[in-house]
Structures are given as C-alpha cells and as structure tokens.
Amino acid sequence: MNEITSAIQLIPLQHYIILSVTLFSIGMMGVLFRRNIIAILMCLELMFNSANLLLAAFSAYHSDPSGQVFVFFIMIVAAAEVAVGLSIVVMMKRNVESVDINLLNRLKW
C-alpha cells in the first residue's frame, strides 16, 4: 500500500501528459475515421477520459482534491451526454434507417 501511494513520485508528470495526449489524439482520429455514429460517440468518450486522467494526475501531483471533484463532474456530464446522444442515435436509426453520419447532410439548411 505504501508502495502504491508513493508510486506517482517515481513517474514524471510529463509521462501522464504524453499518455493523455496520445489517447486524445487517438480519440480525435477515431472521430474523423469512422462513419458509424455510435463509434464516434465512443471515441468522444475516449477523449473525455484522457482529459479526466490528466486532471486526476495533476490533482494527485499537486495534492489538491478539487481536480478529482472536477473529474467527478465531468463524469456526470458525460453520463448525461451519452444518454441524450444515444437517444438521438436511436431516433436517427428509426428515421433514416441508418447510423451513417454522411446521411445527416441537412445541416446546410
């Protein structure tokens, strides 16, 4: 237990940053890569979580619990977002018989 609590002091903060950036970029790439709207939502979750990880890491390094409370709030928002987002997906599937974002081309009006 003691070992774990002191583990963060062995790993530089820089590495957490690089990890977050990597995950964020992968999420971003996924958003651009996929046409399936559910997959895109998943990639968004990935990006959310990279941000969460960074917040938690900073919080731990600075010994400030506020950062972890932020993460908690982000999770709340993410949960709400997923609920609404998935209901939109269901509606879209029902209306256009597809989950392809290229079919959602009415934004120009």
Binding site: M28, V31, L32, R35, I101, N102, L104, N105, R106, L107, K108, W109
Partner: peptide
C-alpha cells in the same frame, strides 16, 4: 463547402 456533410465539418473543425 457547405454541403451539410458532417464528416467534412469535423475535418474542418479539427
């Protein structure tokens, strides 16, 4: 450019 294609919009945004 404004064809309502969401993929393109995402690209443009990024």
């Amino acid at each position: 450019l404004q064809q309502g294609n969401m993929s393109f919009y995402l690209f443009a945004m990024v």
